[in-house]
Amino acid sequence: MNSHSRITAVSTVARAPKVAVAVKPAEAASAAQTSGLSAVLRQTKYVISENPITGFAFALFLLFAIAAIFGPWIVPYDPLATNTAIQLQPPSWAHWFGTDQYGRDLFSRVVVATRLDMTIAITSVALVFVLGGISGIAAGYFGGWIDIVVSRLADMIMAFPLFVLAMGIVAALGNTVTNIVIATAIINFPLYARIARAEANVRREAGFVMAARLSGNSEWRILFSQILPNVMPIMVVQMSLTMGYAVLNAAGLSFIGLGVRPPTPEWGIMVADGAGYIVSGEWWVALFPGLTLMLAVFCFNLLGDGLRDIVDPQRRT
C-alpha cells in the first residue's frame, strides 16, 4: 500500500493537491505525510533511485517538456520561414538538422513540433482517462446495466483493428486535429474502461467500502472518495503506458495526411515530407523528426514500465 501512495503522489505532479486529499480516507496513514511540493520532490527522487533507467526516461521527459513549453522562444530560426537559397542542405553548424525542400530549418521545426505532438497525446490520453476511467469504475462498482453498456461498448470498439477505426473516425468526423484527439481517445477507451472496471470490481465489497457504506455515505460518494483514489495508481500507470501509443497513433494519422496541415510543423507530417527524399539520399529531412518521435515514444514507454514495476511488480515481463 505504501508504494501505491508514493506513486500517486509522484505521477500526478500536475494535480498533486487534489489527489493527495482524495487519497486520505483510504490510506490515511501514509498519505498524511505526502503533501506539498517537497514531498512530491522527495518521492520523485525515490522513484528515480529505484531504477536508473526510469531516471533517464524522466530526464528525457523533462527535455521534451521544456521543448514543448519554451520551444517557439528557444529555437534559432522561424520554423515557417522559407529560404530558397538553402534548399535541402545537409546538417551543418548553422542548421543542426539540415534544411528541407523549402529551406526551412529542420531543427527549429522539430523542436517547435514538440508542443503540438505532446498536446495531441496528452489531451487524448487525459480525455480517455476521465471518460474510460469513470465509466469503467462505475461499471465495476455498480454492475447491472451500466456494466453491460460499458462492457459492450468496449467490445464493439475492440472488434476493429484500432488504427483502422481511428482512420474511419477521422474521415467521418472531419479532417482536423481535434478529431485526431477524439479518435485516439476512442480507440484507447476499452483499455482504460476494462482496467478501471476490474480494479473497481475487486474492491466493491472491500472492508473500507463496507465501512463507508455503514457510516451512511451515498454510493456515488463512496465511488468518488473510496474507489476512485484506490484505482488511481494503476490508471496512472496505464496512462503513461498508453501515452507512447497515443503519440505514435497521432503521428501515424498525420503521416497519411490526416489532421495536421502543412506547413504546421508536426513530426508525422515532417517524416511524410522527407519520405520522398530518402530514395534520393537526402536522409536528414525524414531522419530527425522520425528519430525525435521515436525518442518520445521510447521515453514514455520506459517511464510507463518504470512506474508499473514499482506499482505492480507482478506484471513485470
Binding site: G244, G252, G268, V271, A272, A275, G290, L291, M294, N301
Partner: peptide, 8 residues
C-alpha cells in the same frame, strides 16, 4: 520495437 514508428 514498440517505440519505432512503423513508417519511420
Amino acid at each position: 520495437g514498440v517505440s519505432l514508428p512503423v513508417f519511420f
